[in-house]
Amino acid sequence: MRRLRHPLPGFGLGLGVGMAWLGLVVLLPLLALCVRAAGLGIDGWLRAFRDERVQAALQLSFGAALVAAIVASLVGLIVAWVLVRYRFPGRRLIDALVDLPFALPTAVAGIALTAIYSSNGWVGQWLEPLGIKIAYTSVGITLALIFIGLPFAVRSVQPLLETLGREQEEAAASLGASRWTALRRVVLPEVLPGVLTGFSLAFARGLGEYGSVIFIAGNLAYKTEIAPLLITIRLEEYDYNGAIALAALLLAASFLCLLAINAIPALFAHGRGKGDHHVC
C-alpha cells in the first residue's frame, strides 16, 4: 500500500520549530511568572493586595476596562452594521481606519488623545469652561481604552453580519415580524457570540494597556494610577513580590478572558442544538 504523504512538506519539522519558538517566547516567561507567584505564599499575596494604593489601581484598571469594553462592544456593533449593510462614499476608508489602533504605536495614541482632550487641546479647551475634564481623569483613561478596544469589537462582529446576509430578515418580515422583532429574534442571536468575543478581547486588552493610558491618565497615586504602571513602579522600588503579585493577577484575568472566548462558540452551538429559533 502506498504511504500517504502529508499535504504540507516538512510539517513535522515546522511544527516542532513553531512549538519550540512559542515555548521559549511565550510559555517559558509565563511559566516563570506563575512559579514566582506561587512561591509568594498566602502572606505574600495578602501583603501585596492589602496596600490601599494597589487596591485603588486595581479598581481603576478593572472598572475602566469593563466600562470601555461595554462601550466598545455597543459602538463596534453599530460600526460593523453600517459597514456591512450600507454602501456609501468613503466606506473603504472608514473600514481601514477601524484597524488604525492596531497599527498605531500606543504611545503615539496616548500623546494624541492627551493633546486633544487636555485643558488647552482642540476639544478640551471647549469642555474645560463647562466643568468637563477628560484628560488626567478616569474618563480619559476609559476613552483611551475604548480607542484601543474598538477594533476588536468591530472585527469580531463584522464577519458574522457578512455571513448572515438579509435572507433571514426577509423571511421574518414575510412571516409578519416587525423590524424590532427581526432584529431581536433573528439578528442579535446570530451576532451575540461575536459581541461577547469582542467584549472579552477588549476587556483583556484594556487590563494590560500601558502606552496609550499613561499620558492621558496623569498617574496620580490613589486616583489615576493604573495597575500596569504600578507594576513598573514596584519594580523600580525593588518590591519584586508586589510587582509579581500584580502581574500574576492581571495574567489570570486575561487568561480567564481567553478561556471565555474559546467557550463562547461551543456554548451557543449547544444552545442552538436544543431547539430552533421562533420569529413570530
Rank of each mutant, 00 (worst) to 15 (best):
L31P: 08
I231W: 01
V98E: 05
S254K: 10
I70V: 15
G140P: 06
A217P: 04
G242S: 10
F88R: 06
T181E: 08
G39V: 03
F268G: 01
L164E: 03
A64D: 04
Q158D: 05
V84G: 03
A173S: 01
V187N: 02
V139K: 08
W21E: 12
L8M: 08
W81P: 06
L104V: 03
I111D: 11
L30R: 05
V213T: 13
I244V: 14
V54Y: 03
P193S: 09
G271V: 00
N120S: 12
E190V: 11
H6G: 05
V79A: 12
Y117I: 13
W21V: 14
A32Q: 11
G208Q: 08
R184S: 12
Y117V: 11
A144E: 00
L145S: 08
V195S: 04
F268Y: 13
L74G: 15
L15A: 15
E162I: 03
D99Q: 12
L28G: 07
I134P: 14
S119E: 15
L192P: 01
S118L: 02
F199R: 07
I78Q: 08
Q158T: 09
V17H: 12
S212V: 00
N120V: 13
D43V: 06
V35W: 11
G76S: 05
A37F: 07
R155Y: 02
E190N: 15
L143H: 09
A37H: 02
